[in-house]
Design a protein around this nucleic acid. Structure first.
Lengths: 195, 195
DNA sequence: CAATCTTATTGACCTATATCAATTAGGATA
DNA sequence: TATCCTAATTGATATAGGTCAATAAGATTG
């Protein structure tokens, strides 16, 4: 039942069976249907989530009320409001299911206990956050040095088949451009492919 | 001599004196003068650096040869090519001293030993990278939702007094805008202050 | 299979920022 | 202090992408 996350863990660290058990026994199963929210702004963030099945997005609304997508998550990704979770403050994110989703949640207090009892999991999360940091850095750079077309192509490569799972307006939003602009870029790309 | 970093560590974790000793004894002192490089592209990255004194910038050149600044570092900041260090691959960054600088370096292999002998330091770096991740996320969002003027004001707040230590063209570069644009923004802000 | 609702596309126009080219202002150096 | 040299500013113009409004194309539902 927890094989997906056990595999994910073993791809990053080598815990003993006892340590693995300590971690896995803290997890809880959660399901959300398409359109439902795992988290809304103002909530005290007690959990982070590992995606077993489905697709979700994390976003917030800025002062002008515009939406900004921070992250998509599909199978084998962690999703959450890392800032609010880490600092144990109220969330300012929405996490919404784009498809019906099954997840595993980890509770903040229980995670602190895991860190005491099985410190190897400090390493697991250190590695995950390091990877997230690096890929986020690439996102900043990409936004600075590339135009919409190149960023869209890059996005399609790093999230393969995502086009079929995520609406174009959400992709546009993630890239920080308007749906209209993305539409024109996609049109230009189609033309290129044909010729 | 190592009090600055010992303080920094103690602000994040509570190691035993023995653990602290293990960590501190792996550090080496490094000095670079203004204009000199701590790291250049193509180098195998063996170290990350903690700034005791001075100011540095980390940047890279994109395919068109344009420069992009990823990070400034001043006293009590860590700086390095985290991607290359973590993955133990060749760097693609320049790290250059903007002021004469004194640093402490930590070696990759020695850090792995520290992790084995004093696992509490997994936590130290997990916390640091988490904070870096969060502040980087704010940088992405800021670039998406704000114009140059608001981003410049935000920058001045998060790096206080940096104006006196960093050239405007480097600030502009960090913000992802041209020096000309930043100059106009600064002019507009001066007018506002006067009236 | 209509009717309705949502998403995507297209067109016309606008704006923030980039680009290119001078010019000015400060620091460093002789 | 005069001379360089680099950084900052200013002006004129170009452009990618935004905004607003109108269709068109898919989905979804009764």
């Amino acid at each position: 039942m927890h094989t997906a996350i056990a595999d994910h863990i073993q791809n990053h660290i080598q815990p003993t069976p006892a340590e693995m058990h300590i971690f896995l026994s803290t997890l809880n199963e959660v399901s959300v249907s398409r359109g439902q929210f795992l988290l809304k702004p103002g909530t005290h963030v007690k959990h982070e989530y590992f995606v077993i099945k489905g697709c979700l997005k994390a976003y917030y609304l800025d002062v002008k009320g515009s939406k900004h997508i921070l992250q998509f998550a599909i199978e084998n990704w962690w999703i959450g409001d890392f800032n609010a979770f880490y600092n144990q403050i109220a969330s300012n994110l929405y996490i919404e299911a784009i498809e019906d989703a099954q997840l595993l949640s980890i509770n903040y207090d229980k995670l602190q206990e895991v860190y005491e009892q099985a410190p190897i999991f400090e390493r697991y999360f250190r590695i995950l956050i390091t990877k997230a940091f690096i890929s986020q850095q690439k996102r900043i750079l990409s936004a600075q040095e590339k135009n919409t077309q190149d960023r869209y192509l890059e996005f399609c490569q790093s999230y393969p088949n995502i086009e079929n799972r995520v609406a174009n307006y959400d992709v546009a939003n993630y890239l920080g451009v308007t749906p209209e602009n993305l539409s024109r870029v996609r049109k230009a790309l189609k033309k290129l492919k044909l010729s």
